[in-house]
């Protein structure tokens, strides 16, 4: 494929896919080891009602109110999960299940009842996103990467997602030791003066930031898959946390790139006419990677 075709059509969606995958996989490692993997699932679902409410309040499809609505919904969900867990004495997994299904369903109902037909906001979009549509029409080839005029029209999702990835990576890097120690042995972490409660909350908030930033571009399916699949596959490759996180980044990148390519060209290679959803294919590839690691990973039991 030539640069004049690849750069405007495929480069940006592919990079966004990689940023989303890595931004979700990084905190996913810790969520998985803390037996909180479902929290990513919960966040990515509850984002929908937040976005719909933001749309109903402002009447426009704009990024900022939607992000705020999504973030607000994520906070409400985290608070509701904690409240149900404590007051109802229900185990965390079940509390998450209750909250995210209810809020997602509420979001779907709101969406159907409100008049959003004129705008690009529907359930399908919420699930699969619109990765393929994030094209960079002003690019003419690789040289556009150095052309300020073309760069000015780069889809805003890319810098936004790259920023979210940077934030997530910075958080994990700075708090690496407290995160590792408190995930392994919370009591011991507290005797060393670590604030394990706020740290755990910060981890969830960082995961929520990644999920909310990713939601608009790629929908919730891929977010859920990336929180769980790359870390789960990586855990089967090694018995060291440092190596596990490195593997999860590799798997997330592979899933994003391979998934995007397979979605675009796989059906053509098989003789079909249309391409399939990139988000769906990325999630599928990540699942296949877990299956492969489960069968062949050196650290599986």
């Amino acid at each position: 494929m030539s640069g004049s075709e690849f750069v405007p059509l495929s480069l940006v969606p592919m990079l966004i896919g990689v940023c989303v995958a890595v931004a979700c996989a990084l905190p996913g490692n810790f969520l998985l080891l803390r037996r909180q993997a479902l929290i990513g699932d919960a966040i990515s679902h509850v984002v929908l009602p937040g976005i719909v409410v933001a749309f109903l309040l402002t009447g426009i499809v704009a990024s900022l109110p939607m992000l705020l609505g999504a973030a607000g919904a994520a906070l409400v969900a985290v608070a509701a999960i904690e409240a149900i867990r404590r007051l109802g004495k229900i185990e965390p997994g079940a509390a998450m299940g209750v909250v995210f299904t209810t809020m997602f369903a509420g979001g779907v109902l709101l969406l159907e009842m409100s008049d959003t037909s004129a705008v690009h906001l529907d359930v399908e979009h919420a699930l699969y996103g619109n990765l393929e549509s994030l094209i960079w029409l002003d690019a003419t080839g690789w040289s556009s990467l150095w052309d300020p005029q073309a760069l000015a029209y780069l889809p805003v999702e890319l810098p936004r997602m790259a920023g979210a990835l940077g934030l997530v990576a910075l958080f994990i890097a700075v708090f690496w030791r407290p995160l590792k120690i408190s995930t392994f042995d919370e009591g011991f972490a507290r005797t060393m003066g670590m604030q394990t409660g706020p740290l755990g909350l910060a981890l969830v908030v960082v995961a929520a930031i990644a999920a909310v930033a990713a939601f608009d571009a790629v929908g919730s399916i891929i977010v859920i898959a990336m929180f769980i699949c790359p870390p789960a596959a990586a855990r089967l490759m090694t018995n060291r946390l440092e190596t596990q996180v490195a593997w999860s980044v590799v798997f997330a990148t592979v899933a994003a790139v391979a998934g995007y390519v397979l979605a675009g060209y796989g059906p053509l290679w098989l003789g079909a006419a249309d391409s399939v959803s990139a988000a769906g294919m990325i999630a599928t590839v990540s699942g296949v990677l877990v299956a492969g690691a489960a069968l062949m990973g050196p650290a599986r039991r």
């Binding site: 080891l33 590792k180 392994f184 009591g187 011991f188 018995n239």
Partner: peptide, 13 residues
């Protein structure tokens, strides 16, 4: 701590 209080499957040496 009590040995049973931590996750011994944790990926660490």
């Amino acid at each position: 701590p009590q040995r049973a209080s931590v996750d011994w499957d944790f990926p660490t040496r």
